[in-house]
Each structure stands twice: as structure tokens, then as C-alpha cells.
Design a protein around this nucleic acid. Structure first.
Lengths: 338, 338
DNA sequence: TGTTGGCACTCACCGCGGCCGAGTGCCAGC
DNA sequence: GCTGGCACTCGGCCGCGGTGAGTGCCAACA
């Protein structure tokens, strides 16, 4: 086990490196922190920390920088989330309070988070898994072509075209529309599949193909609708990455463009509580030199979606975690109110 | 006026510089292009071109690079749009053809354009104002509460609640729905107001209030929902900007995050035909070292929105313009079909 | 055993100077 | 008006040594 002082040294190294972006040496450490020991002692401690893999030196004769493992220990044991100041909290509330609709809430949240943390912000739209179907509408566009419109209780409207295997009469259409609505209206998305399962059987043999096609499209729509969307912002902050950034920034930009990657990233985080993934802890290769701080947010006690930031592993963890937590809390409040 | 050969020299300089990203000298020019004259002659021509401000030299003893003015002349007079090859066109069609809804069309278009041009792609959602109405749907939510859904030919769906002054029967609803659609379906938004003007008169006195309310809401939707949205992609391509890119990339990223800036950018372009804005021709300062190639697209002959790419002034103009034009054309087709 | 001062060593960084070569402008000749 | 020749410029590329921050090791000390 590492002694108390050695942990203190690690903490000091992390703090200095995050601040200066340069490898930190033993002498500088003793000067900037009152550790009460001489540089020589610190050197011994550093050697031990390096032995354990918490820090590394980029060149033989240079200072040390924290490794992913070092940051991990720092985040887990050596620091605590830095709370926002009262003015900051007020500013957050004011800014988010001005939102007019869901898109606006998410948009403002992204901008706010990017500004507060000076990093790339990612906000997932609230999950719609608990939404219900308000109405399903079927329109005939051509003899064998229908339009399916699904309206949810959250006011969302989704629309799809359906190419029928066979022409479908107006009366059959009206029939299907009526039966469909009587079954699914007011029901939760998740329940729709079994509610409509046996519907084709009650139709004429000629029409069953079309009915099945319509149902398949409906189910597909619901699945897609519950699929999570997200918004990102603050990509300009990537330019603050460091000197070697041309090489680093590209895979990050590429990863950020792949919503799938980001959704997986957020999905891997814990449902409740804040998650910090550091460097190589991120499964995606392009994000190996970044850290992701994420947390769930929701209108009630339960998280309906997640938000977070992506930044260099060399980031101000306490401050970032504080900002992420605070923003998540206030977004939850706003959602609960609206 | 510049002689024919001097224009040829300018064209060669642009082509070489775009390819190599390095200042091009007189000797290299004569070697790579069969101009039929010696380097000395080319030097004279270059001096003249520099005098006129079409090219410049970064250092006293280096080759020349085109200025914004040089690129402008190149685009206007010295080149033509490079058409896509047949396989490319097929690939575009296949890729866009797989889209399931408007969001998907726009998303695919952005990805496609970014990939084809290897630059940042910007696609504006079809504007409502220039669209036509495909269908208006009315649903009864409660005795005196309706839902109005407007579906446009571009696949966009807008939805509103209507609180009626008086209860409205199902038959009257069906009647209104039918008459409304027979009048406005297929018509442009702009024409809707006079088309429905006298509609209330043909209803029972009791229902006129509701009909008027519905119509008011419909008109309001058409007017109010002109909010333009857009999608961008391919920001990872910004890393191909050049060596000095850390300084250049940041304002570009910042500009791209401001949708207002981009909308203004596209708005400034001509409504029909392709627009190329080179370097300082862009009003926004952050985009002074980029060129923007944009074009309108639409389901019919008329443009309903714009799309384009943002890249370094040193870009392959013929190729980029070809790709932008081709994508716009096929997106228009897809929208018309769906 | 842990801490400290001393000391030799390493090596990235910086500034200097010289060389090289691509590219230029000018000019006289065809 | 084109061409070859020529002197000149100057950015980029070594190779050089000096500098200094930082290290590891060791002997001495509490």
C-alpha cells in the first residue's frame, strides 16, 4: 500500500499537470505544494509511484505525468466533486429556465455544459420508452401504397410509407385503422407488439399480407422512436487539446460523428451516479486519449437519459464533475416542471 | 486583358497547388504541364499574374499560390463542373434511396456529401414556406379539442392542438377534413390562405367558429413554422486543412456550431444555381480561409432548401461542385418520390 | 528505516552558423 | 515576344555546443 504522503504527491502531480500541461518535476512540486519534505524524498516517492504505474516520464530526463491509472486513483480516492458556486447555480437555472420546448432544453443544456466545462458536451434526449401511442392514422396514397402516421402522447409525430404486397381497399383500410386504434391508443410503446400480434388473422386472406406489412412498419417506427437521439456541442473546445492535437483530434471528431458510438459510450455508464471513464477505459479506440464524464438525469428520481462531456484525460476532474452533476440536476428540475 | 497562355498558367498553378498543397514554381509548372514554353517565360507570366493580384508568393524566394481572386477567376472562367461518373451516380442513388424518413434523408445526404467531397457538409432541412401540402389530418382528441397534422411533400410533419369554441361532431370533422384536403392538397403553402378563405361559409353556423379556429391554426402553422433547421457532418475532414490548421480550424468549428451563421451563409447564396464563395467573400470572419459551395435543391423545379460544403479555399472546385450538384439533384428526386 | 544533501549524468531544447537548392528577377541575344 | 544564362534571395536542414531541469544513486544522519 502506498503511504499517505505518496498519495499526496500523486495528487499534487495531477493538479500541477492539469494546470500547466507540462511534466512536473520533484523540485517544482516541493515549491508549489507544502509537502514538508525535500525534493530528494519526493523523488523516491515518484520512483515508487512510477514502479506502480501511476505516473510515467515522457523522456528519460523530464518530469512525470500521470497515467490513466494515476488519474483513476486520483478520481476515486484523492479528490471530491467541486460544487458549483451560488452565482454559477443561479446562472445555470436562469439559462435553462428560458427554454421553450424539449429541443430547446436539450440545445441549451449542450451549450451550457460546453461553456462551463470548456469541453465537448453530449446530451441524450429523454428516453421515450414510457411514452404511449395517442393515435395511429392510415392514409391511402396509391392503390398499393399507404402512409402511416403515429402520434405519441409527447406530441411527437412519426410518419412512414408502406408499400403493400397487394392493393388494399378503402373499407379494409378504415377497418384496419379502427381496429388498430382501439387496440393501441393510450397504450405504452412496449406493449404494442403483443397487442397487435393476432390482428392479421381477423382479416381476409387477401389483405393479411398488407396488414402484416403495416404492422411491421408500425413496430419498426416505435422501435426507432424509442431509439435514443442526442445532441453534441462545444467541438471547438477540442482545439484546446494540447500541442500534439492534430493527431488526437481527428479520431475524436470521427467518434463524435458516430451517434452509435456515443450512445454506446453513454450506455456503458452506470444508470445512476456519475461515471468517469479515463483514457483506455473507453472501449472506442479513437477516444483512448480522452476521458468521459457522464451522469443520468431525469424529471423524477429515475434517470430518463444521460449527459456528459468528453475531454482530454488531462482535465480538471473535480470541476468537470461538479459542472456535469449540477447541470444534470437542473435539467431534471426543468423537465419536471414542464 | 490577360493572354490565353497566362490564364492557362493560372489554371495550372491552381491545379498543382490544390494537389500538392505547396507553392508551385515555374520549373515544376513547365514539367508537369505541356505549356510549350520555357520556365523563363512562365516566370514573366507569373509576374504579370501577381501584379494583377491573382497569385502571391508566401516568401520572397518561393513558388506562387493562388489568391482568393485567383480562385475566383479559376472557378468563373477556367474550369467547368466535373460530372460524377456513372458508378458514382448509382452509388449516390442507392445510398439515398434507402432512407426511411426525412431525418434519414437529410442525415444520409450529409454523410454522403461529406464522404464524396471529403469536406464538411451542411444540409438545410426543406423549408416549409416553399413546400406544398400533401395532406392535412384532423383528429378528435376530446369533444372540443382537435389535433391538426400537416404533412408536406418533403416529408416534414407539423402538428398542433386546436381548442374549439364549441363541440365538433365526427361527421363535421370528416367533412372538414375532406374539403380541406381537396382544396389544399398539392398546393403551395403560400397559396393556402386564399384557397381556404371561404371555407367556413359552407358549414353550419354552429360549426363555423371551430372551422375558423382550425383554419387560423393551420395558417399560423404555415407562417410560424418557418424555423430553419440544418444538419452538418464530416467535421473530421477539417483535420485535412493543412499544416497551419490549429489556428484556422477553431473559428471554423465555432462558426459551424452557430446555426444562425450557417443559415445566413446559405441564405446569402443564390436561390437557384450553384454559388461558390471563396475566402474573404464570406461575410463571417471565421470562414475567411474557407470556401463554401452551395446549391438549392427541391422536389420539383423549385428549390425548397440548400445544401453545400465548407472546405479550405484550396479545394478541388470542379470535383466539389460536381458532387454538390449531383447530390442536390438526387436528393430532389428522392423527395419527389416519397 | 526513512529522510536528506550532494553529485554526476542524461537529454530535450535553443540559438548559431553554414550549406543547399528551389525559385526568382533581370538582361542580352535570337 | 521568347529563351537561356546568371546572380541573388532566403527558407529549410543539418550539426554544433551550451544550458538547465530533472533524475538516480549514495553516503550520512535522525
Amino acid at each position: 500500500m502506498l503511504s499517505e504522503r505518496r498519495l499526496e504527491v500523486l495528487r499534487a502531480i495531477v493538479q500541477d499537470y492539469v494546470g500547466t500541461e507540462e511534466p512536473v518535476g520533484s523540485k517544482a512540486l516541493t515549491e508549489r505544494h507544502h509537502l514538508g519534505v525535500s525534493p530528494a524524498t519526493v523523488r523516491n516517492d515518484m520512483a515508487a509511484l512510477e514502479e506502480e504505474g501511476f505516473i510515467a516520464q515522457p523522456h528519460t530526463s523530464a518530469g512525470r505525468i500521470p497515467t490513466d491509472k494515476g488519474y483513476r486513483l486520483f478520481v476515486d480516492k484523492l479528490t471530491s466533486v467541486k460544487p458549483m458556486t451560488a452565482p454559477e447555480r443561479r446562472a445555470i437555472q436562469n439559462f435553462l429556465g428560458g427554454a421553450v420546448d424539449l429541443d430547446d432544453v436539450v440545445g441549451r443544456t449542450v451549450r451550457l455544459l460546453a461553456q462551463l466545462t470548456r469541453q465537448v458536451a453530449v446530451v441524450q434526449y429523454p428516453s421515450l420508452t414510457r411514452s404511449t401511442v395517442r393515435h395511429v392514422e392510415l392514409l391511402s396514397l396509391a392503390p398499393a401504397r399507404l402512409m402511416l402516421v403515429v402520434i405519441t402522447d409527447t406530441g411527437r409525430v412519426e410518419q412512414r410509407h408502406v408499400d403493400c404486397p397487394a392493393p388494399f381497399g378503402e373499407s379494409a383500410l378504415a377497418d384496419l385503422r379502427a381496429r388498430l386504434n382501439s387496440r393501441v391508443a393510450g397504450r405504452r410503446f412496449a406493449d404494442v407488439p403483443q397487442l397487435v400480434q393476432d390482428l392479421p388473422e381477423s382479416f381476409e386472406a387477401d389483405d393479411r399480407g398488407t396488414v402484416s406489412t403495416v404492422l411491421a412498419t408500425l413496430l419498426e417506427t416505435l422501435v426507432e422512436e424509442t431509439e435514443e437521439r442526442l445532441m453534441i456541442g462545444g467541438t471547438a473546445n477540442l482545439t484546446r487539446f494540447g500541442h500534439d492535437f492534430p493527431l488526437v483530434i481527428r479520431p475524436v471528431l470521427e467518434a463524435l460523428e458516430e451517434q452509435v458510438v456515443l450512445l454506446k459510450l453513454l450506455g456503458e455508464a452506470e444508470d445512476s451516479g456519475m461515471t468517469v471513464r479515463i483514457g483506455h477505459e473507453n472501449a472506442h479506440e479513437g477516444l483512448n486519449s480522452t476521458s468521459v464524464v457522464s451522469v443520468g438525469y431525469g424529471s423524477g428520481g429515475e434517470a430518463v437519459a444521460k449527459l456528459g462531456v468528453v475531454g482530454p484525460t488531462r482535465m480538471d476532474y473535480p470541476g468537470t464533475m461538479g459542472a456535469v452533476r449540477a447541470v444534470a440536476r437542473y435539467v431534471g428540475q426543468i423537465l419536471a416542471e414542464s
